[in-house]
Amino acid sequence: MLDLYFTVRSVTPGQKGRDALNAAGLRCRLLRAPRAAAPGGCAYALALARRDGPRAAAVLDRAGVRVEGQWLRSPEGSFERVGP
């Protein structure tokens, strides 16, 4: 389940991050960030499996993609900020 959301400011770092994660063999989906995970308004999110979080964070850091926040989506659809 892709329930860990890494938010980025806009679509460009999102696309760069997606390509870096895919190249590292990590499955992810780039999507518009839900409002609850975008306090600044209009952002994008890379949705990942929770277990891939630490490795994904390292891959994105190496690619120079700045993550604005890490959010966990509950089965009910609410979001809890879990980092950074």
């Binding site: 400011r9 460009t12 600044g40 308004g41």
Partner: peptide, 15 residues
């Protein structure tokens, strides 16, 4: 299409 609540232009390129 990003950070719409912020009235300053984004610092990041290319936006």
């Amino acid at each position: 299409g990003s950070r719409s609540l912020d009235q300053a232009m984004p610092a990041e390129l290319p936006e």
